[in-house]
Computed example of a mutant assay.
Amino acid sequence: MTMRIDPISRAYEAYKSQKVTPTKKINSVSSKDQVEFSSIAKEFGSVYKMALEAPEIRKDKVESLKEQIKSGTYNVKSEEVAEKIMSQFDIKG
């Protein structure tokens, strides 16, 4: 009668007979993780912060303007628009 050795048993015996050597302990690293944001991410963050700090929308004024635009009675003087734009950049005409 022949005794058959299971291949899994042989693999187990091979691993069991290997000599295990302890690993060396690694000293903890004293440096800290750092994150650096791109200029686009920084700009987005500042725009987002400004949006959060912006005053709430005046719904009554928005509705009034919508009605004026819809009815064709909304008129803006181009000089006023230009002055407002220039004032944003401290440009005097």
Rank of each mutant, 00 (worst) to 15 (best):
G93S: 15
S17R: 09
D90M: 14
S38V: 00
K42F: 00
R4D: 01
V76D: 05
S28I: 10
R58W: 02
Y12M: 14
K77E: 12
V29H: 04
K24G: 06
K92D: 15
L52Q: 11
T21S: 09
M86R: 15
V62S: 08
V20A: 06
Y15G: 11
Y15K: 11
E53P: 01
V47G: 03
S38H: 07
V29M: 05
L65P: 01
Q34I: 02
I40M: 08
Q88M: 14
A41Y: 05
V62Q: 06
E67M: 11
Q18F: 05
A82F: 03
S71Y: 02
V81Q: 08
S9N: 08
K84W: 02
S38E: 00
E53L: 12
I40Y: 07
S38L: 05
S71K: 10
F44V: 11
R4Q: 09
K19M: 01
K84H: 08
Y15H: 11
K16S: 14
Q34T: 05
Q68H: 08
S39I: 04
R58C: 04
I85K: 13
K77Q: 15
V20N: 06
M1E: 07
N27R: 11
F37P: 03
V76P: 05
E83M: 09
I26Q: 12
K66E: 12
L65C: 07
S46P: 03
V81I: 15
S71N: 12
K24L: 03
M3C: 07
Q18G: 01
E36F: 07
K66C: 06
Q68L: 15
S39D: 13
Y48A: 07
K92P: 09
K61E: 14
E80P: 01
K66I: 10
E67H: 12
S30R: 02
E43S: 06
S71Q: 08
P22C: 02
Q34V: 07
Q18A: 10
K24D: 10
L65T: 10
D90Y: 09
T21D: 08
K25E: 02
I91P: 13
S64V: 06
E36Y: 04
K59N: 13
Y12L: 13
A51L: 12
Q88A: 15
T2V: 15
D33T: 11
I40S: 12
S31A: 04
Q68E: 12
S64A: 14
R58H: 07
F37A: 05
P7L: 01
I5W: 04
P22F: 00
